[in-house]
């Protein structure tokens, strides 16, 4: 059985993180920005799992990855609800045009 160097996992997750960062920085759409945040969370989960592969007694990396996935699921549900509400209020989901909190 051949092995895969740890750097390749890390480089892949770094590239995924940077793609997510690009989405958050440049896109003018709240849903795409949310997708970018999800990509960054996924990159973190890959890193946790890759480092956790060395630790075989407690599976800490895997457990932290599961907790991170569940937390991001909760945040997506709330964020999407807020985005829908913002769209009803402002008729746009462009973050630059949302400039009031109340009326």
């Amino acid at each position: 059985m051949s092995t895969i160097p740890l750097e390749h996992f890390l480089l892949m997750s770094a590239a995924l993180f940077c793609i997510g960062l690009y989405a958050v920085l440049t896109r003018r759409n709240l849903v795409i920005m949310l997708i970018g945040i999800e990509l960054m969370v996924n990159a973190g989960v890959i890193n946790l799992a890759a480092f956790g592969a060395f630790e075989t007694s407690h599976h800490e990396g895997q457990m932290m990855g599961i907790f991170a996935i569940v937390l991001s699921a909760a945040s997506v549900a709330v964020a999407l609800a807020i985005i829908l509400k913002v769209y009803q209020q402002f008729n746009t989901i462009e973050p630059g045009k949302i400039d009031t909190l109340r009326n």
Partner: peptide
């Protein structure tokens, strides 16, 4: 699929 390669099957 990549997570499977880190032996994190459940994840």
């Amino acid at each position: 699929g990549i997570l499977v390669f880190t032996r994190a099957d459940y994840l």
